[in-house]
Simulated scan of single mutants.
Amino acid sequence: MKNFKWTALIVVCIAFAKANTLQAQENFKAIAHYIVQTKIDLKDDEDKEKEAKDEAEDARTSEIMAKLREAMAKGNQQEYVMEITPTESSYNKVVELAKPKKAGEISVSFTVNNGSTSSVYKDLKEQKYYKEDEIMGKEFLIVDDIPSYAWQPVNETKKIGNYTCYKATYTPVLTEEEKKEQEEKMEKASQGSLLAMIPEQDRTITAWYTPEIPISNGPGEYQGLPGLILEVQEANTVLLCTKIEINPEKDLDMKKPKSGKKINQKDFDELREKKMQERMERNGNKGFIITRTTSN
């Protein structure tokens, strides 16, 4: 174990030295492609399942409940592209064309907000990130400091593609405010059968990074390791780099977001939570998006 610690320390030092050298090369650029997969495994609770069925008013409601279960178990997969230079990066979702649906067909989807599922621009010189987001149609420009992660090295390596990757973990500590919010959410979840069946998740974030690409950066808000982060696992979400283009011939198209009312992340999250609660109380949506296709 002592030998590994010394080896890990040497690797980290060499990687940071390479990172400093590479980041001094202004012409370096790369494009990384990521797949983000989110799945939610429901707890097996027969009482709550029976309760959910009893609450169903008709066959159509039962069908919607079944679709919700199916969507959560199947998961939600999205593709992202990250453009990288030594001083900035841009991580954005690949927009897909909507698939045609039959008239009367019910479509159910869900969204998860975390560090790997938000489109984000990072200014590494200023250590700031910029995101455009909206709440019920109103646009916001989120500007805040890039989060600092107290990564802990783990005695594990693996290959991702052709790159040797090292494992690191980070477990965020709940603040008193977050503990209070968690208690409130658990209390509200107990009133909705599906949300109550979602088990509590381990808060540990696991990252795999490669010193072979010595840029201290990663997808979404993640960064702070001596190499590019190629894989992240956070709660129900797994993020994996599937392709990297080093110094591609085409020019990068990174643009710092500018549209929307400027706000920091904390204030934006609080406002969004408030509006979501208002919406849930108004129509009982529970955070899921349900659409029904109608004929023209």
Score class of each variant (00 low, 15 high):
residue 1 M to P: 14
residue 1 M to H: 14
residue 1 M to L: 15
residue 5 K to C: 14
residue 6 W to I: 14
residue 7 T to E: 05
residue 8 A to H: 13
residue 9 L to N: 11
residue 11 V to N: 06
residue 11 V to C: 08
residue 15 A to P: 00
residue 18 K to L: 15
residue 19 A to N: 05
residue 19 A to T: 08
residue 20 N to V: 15
residue 21 T to L: 10
residue 23 Q to P: 01
residue 23 Q to L: 05
residue 24 A to M: 09
residue 25 Q to I: 12
residue 28 F to N: 03
residue 29 K to R: 10
residue 33 H to Y: 15
residue 33 H to C: 05
residue 43 K to L: 11
residue 43 K to P: 03
residue 43 K to H: 04
residue 43 K to V: 14
residue 48 K to S: 12
residue 53 K to R: 10
residue 63 E to M: 11
residue 63 E to F: 14
residue 67 K to Y: 09
residue 68 L to K: 12
residue 68 L to P: 00
residue 69 R to L: 08
residue 70 E to K: 11
residue 77 Q to K: 14
residue 79 E to P: 10
residue 81 V to T: 14
residue 82 M to R: 03
residue 82 M to D: 02
residue 83 E to I: 13
residue 83 E to F: 14
residue 86 P to L: 01
residue 87 T to A: 15
residue 95 V to F: 15
residue 97 L to A: 15
residue 97 L to M: 15
residue 98 A to F: 14
residue 103 A to M: 05
residue 103 A to F: 10
residue 104 G to W: 02
residue 105 E to G: 05
residue 111 T to W: 04
residue 113 N to Q: 06
residue 115 G to H: 07
residue 117 T to H: 01
residue 117 T to I: 02
residue 118 S to A: 13
residue 120 V to I: 14
residue 120 V to S: 03
residue 126 E to D: 08
residue 126 E to I: 08
residue 130 Y to K: 02
residue 130 Y to Q: 02
residue 132 E to K: 08
residue 137 G to E: 03
residue 141 L to S: 07
residue 142 I to A: 06
residue 150 A to M: 12
residue 151 W to A: 09
residue 156 E to I: 07
residue 157 T to R: 09
residue 160 I to S: 01
residue 161 G to W: 07
residue 163 Y to C: 06
residue 165 C to L: 04
residue 168 A to Y: 07
residue 169 T to E: 11
residue 171 T to Q: 10
residue 171 T to D: 06
residue 173 V to M: 13
residue 174 L to H: 11
residue 187 E to Q: 09
residue 187 E to D: 06
residue 187 E to G: 05
residue 190 S to R: 04
residue 197 M to E: 02
residue 201 Q to Y: 11
residue 205 I to L: 03
residue 205 I to F: 02
residue 206 T to F: 06
residue 207 A to W: 01
residue 208 W to E: 00
residue 209 Y to T: 00
residue 211 P to S: 07
residue 211 P to V: 13
residue 212 E to Q: 11
residue 213 I to F: 02
residue 215 I to S: 01
residue 216 S to F: 03
residue 218 G to F: 01
residue 219 P to N: 04
residue 223 Q to S: 13
residue 223 Q to G: 14
residue 230 L to K: 02
residue 231 E to N: 09
residue 234 E to R: 05
residue 235 A to I: 13
residue 239 L to S: 14
residue 249 E to D: 12
residue 251 D to N: 13
residue 253 D to L: 11
residue 254 M to F: 02
residue 257 P to L: 00
residue 257 P to S: 00
residue 257 P to V: 01
residue 261 K to Y: 08
residue 264 N to A: 10
residue 264 N to D: 13
residue 265 Q to L: 12
residue 266 K to Y: 10
residue 270 E to R: 07
residue 271 L to T: 03
residue 272 R to D: 08
residue 272 R to G: 05
residue 273 E to T: 13
residue 274 K to M: 10
residue 278 E to G: 13
residue 280 M to I: 15
residue 280 M to H: 10
residue 281 E to Q: 09
residue 283 N to Q: 03
residue 288 F to N: 02
residue 290 I to T: 06
